[in-house]
């Protein structure tokens, strides 16, 4: 009895019972447990406090704890559900659930909107889109003239900003993303279907079948 759970008693802050998370996300209990193995690996990689700090997230994503990236920052902020500067296990599982292949497209579309609404104004604005385009060009070490960047932004707004008010609202985004599913390819992680094989959990969970 006691021997199995002795290692389990020390749960990090933000730990939530896998049964509860499985009920409220697309993951099964086994998958949540496998995610816990991955979570532990990341959250103990530098600070060893069982929470994922920005540097640990960057290390897992880029193999470099100092690599700055606008989109990685945005993802980190959205995964930080409690808004306290770290990702806890609950935020990790609930947010990754959006990326599960079986999660409804509407949830992915809504998440992508929040991701691209850089300043949280409720709209994707022209300036925000330009900032993101410049960030990706910088990341790819591509040089484009300001005119070319403006053209890309203009063209995209022509397609997405249906009422032509200079900003993309959630409804316009929904219509635009539904028409262009390729835009949402990065909102699905096929890995999440194989997570139990990639990170097998050997913890005996006596409550799993209750």
């Amino acid at each position: 009895m006691g021997c199995v759970s002795s290692k389990e008693s020390k749960r990090p802050p933000g730990y939530v019972d896998p049964n509860i998370l499985a009920k409220e996300t697309t993951f099964s209990v086994n998958e949540v447990e496998a995610l816990y193995e991955l979570y532990k690996k990341i959250s103990y990689s530098i600070f060893k406090d069982g929470l994922i700090h920005k540097e640990e997230f960057q290390l897992a994503l880029f193999r470099n704890s100092n690599k700055k990236n606008l989109f990685a920052d945005r993802i980190f902020d959205l995964f930080d559900l409690k808004r306290n500067g770290v990702i806890d296990f609950e935020g990790f599982v609930r947010s990754l659930s959006i990326f599960h292949p079986d999660t409804p497209m509407a949830e992915k579309i809504a998440f992508a909107f929040r991701l691209y609404d850089l300043r949280g104004t409720g709209f994707i604005e022209r300036e925000e889109l330009k900032e993101m385009v410049l960030a990706i060009l910088n990341e790819s070490e591509l040089l484009l003239s300001d005119d070319a960047v403006e053209q890309i932004v203009d063209q995209t707004f022509k397609q997405a900003d249906m009422n032509d008010d200079g900003k993309i609202d959630p409804n316009e985004w929904k219509v635009f993303a539904s028409k262009n599913p390729a835009l949402l390819k990065n909102m699905t992680l096929p890995y999440l279907k194989d997570i139990t094989m990639a990170f097998p959990s050997f913890v005996l969970n006596s409550g799993a079948s209750d």
Binding site: A72, R74, N186
Partner: peptide
């Protein structure tokens, strides 16, 4: 006229959005 790439399509290729790397050992 050559078609201009959609900005969101370009953005979706960002390394920072490729969470698959989290799962690589």
């Amino acid at each position: 006229r050559p078609s201009v790439m959609n900005a969101f399509e370009l953005i979706s290729t960002s390394q920072g959005l490729n969470l698959g790397t989290l799962f690589e050992k």
